[in-house]
Simulated scan of single mutants.
Amino acid sequence: MLEIAVQDPDGARAAMAAGADRVELCTGLSTGGLTPSSGLVAAVVEAAGPGRVHVLVRPREGGFVYSSAEVGVMVRDVELLARGAANGSGVAGVVVGALLPGGALDVAATGRMVAAAGGLEVTFHRAIDVCPEPEALVDGLLELGIARVLTSGCASRSIDGISVIAALAARVGDRLEIQAGGGVRVEDIPALLDAGASAVHLSARRQEDAAGPSGPGGGTAAYDVTTPDIVTKAAAAVATYRNRQA
């Protein structure tokens, strides 16, 4: 499977047209991703199609250890997404995660989000990559009934963490989908899949200059957009691998 991280309807539309299997929607990709608005979720589902959009729920940048109030916000966000999905919104899943101060899985907080998700598929995000014992963390994810974990193998780039990705894949077998993500290049995809990852995740983005003036209060003068050419090449690499395994 090929998942593309997107921030807007144009990105979702471009990713699906270029061959992505699904998209992860967030805002603030440059900060690791933040929870999108309900309006943005609806627009991206319309662009990508129902059953293709997984929504990141993360209230702020700055790590993955959250206060009880922050966990409450995330649980409410997940509940709203699950309620919308039950009413036909087309959202397929949520992407969540929380850690304890020492870096272990916050079972209580993550478990509340899993419960709130109802019938939505749950992915645990790259919080695993700052965990000192990722093997123990995936054991906890299995106990919580989580479907997928996104990981770079605890490295800056997934290709550099490929030995950890392989170890995690061997540990969980087909009980948990290991999705490799983090600095993925098209040429890395065959090796990551050979290591046992069953999906790859990349943002396929480039920076584009804003059309008008920017400055104080408006942030930087550039923003990220999805690059269809990269998605097309990534989709081709995944398709080639599938055919080779058939």
Rank of each mutant, 00 (worst) to 15 (best):
V96L: 05
L25Q: 13
G90E: 03
G145F: 15
N243G: 14
G140E: 06
L56H: 15
G181T: 13
R112V: 02
E143S: 11
E208N: 05
A147G: 06
H201R: 15
D224T: 11
R175S: 02
C131N: 13
V94Q: 09
A12S: 07
G39L: 12
A211Y: 08
F64D: 00
G62I: 09
V41Q: 06
G51A: 06
G173Y: 02
R83A: 07
T240I: 11
V138L: 10
E135T: 04
S152K: 02
S68D: 07
K233D: 02
V41E: 00
T232L: 07
G102R: 01
A69M: 08
A221E: 09
I230T: 14
L168I: 04
A180H: 07
L100I: 05
R171E: 10
A12M: 10
G119E: 02
V114C: 03
T31R: 15
L192Q: 01
G217S: 01
G219M: 09
F124H: 10
R244T: 08
D209E: 11
P216A: 06
L56C: 04
G88A: 12
V65K: 01
G51I: 02
V149P: 03
L25I: 10
L137Q: 05
A127C: 08
R185S: 03
V107M: 02
E208G: 09
I128K: 05
G153S: 07
R52I: 00
A18S: 14
R242Q: 12
A15V: 07
C26N: 15
G111N: 11
E61C: 05
L120K: 08
E135C: 02
A127P: 00
L100R: 15
R112A: 11
A237P: 08
V53M: 08
Q179L: 15
A5H: 13
T232M: 06
S37T: 13
L105R: 06
R242N: 08
I159T: 01
A237S: 10
A246N: 03
D229G: 14
R242P: 12
P216V: 04
V200M: 12
A47V: 13
G103P: 01
G62E: 13
